[in-house]
């Protein structure tokens, strides 16, 4: 498990860690019972504030995804809600295919992103309505 931080995003660093761990759980990189790296290990690897890591772990613990065991470490106790890991992988493959088609049709990365964002937005509004 390794982390990456994007500082320009405006998303608090601890939330970025939370999202990355959740994504790893969804993709099956992390499984129930796995031990998360200790705060010190994360800090030594990516030079970030230890409080940020702790806050991320607390957040995950609060959501019931991980469980801290005194003096032993933090362990994955549950996968996040949502379809099983296979679904994600399957959807990723079909999205890949779609992106390939879009490229062949002459869309550049920017237009693909814009298209995706507008679809996400309109489908969210439909879902709400």
């Amino acid at each position: 498990m390794s982390f990456q931080l994007n500082s320009a995003s405006g998303v608090p660093a601890y939330l970025q860690l939370v999202q990355q761990i959740k994504q790893a759980l969804r993709m099956g990189v992390l499984k129930v019972g796995d031990k998360l790296p200790t705060v010190k290990e994360v800090v030594a690897e990516v030079a970030i504030n230890p409080n940020t890591v702790m806050k991320a772990y607390w957040e995950l613990e609060h959501e019931g995804l991980v469980e801290g065991r005194q003096g032993v470490g933090t362990f994955v106790s549950r996968r996040p809600d949502g379809p099983p890991p296979g679904t994600q992988a399957r959807l990723a493959r079909s999205l890949e295919k779609w992106v390939l088609t879009a490229r062949q049709e002459g869309l550049d990365e920017e237009s693909i992103e814009a298209l995706l964002r507008s679809i996400l937005r309109s489908s969210w509004i439909e879902g709400v309505a």
Partner: peptide, 25 residues
């Protein structure tokens, strides 16, 4: 620096112009 913070009860104040570094740490 961050390892030292992880090790115990330590508060830090550091001045810098390098905001990207600061934001991580």
């Amino acid at each position: 620096l961050t390892e030292a913070v992880a090790d115990g009860d330590l508060s830090v104040m550091l001045s810098s112009h390098l905001l990207h570094d600061l934001e991580r740490v």
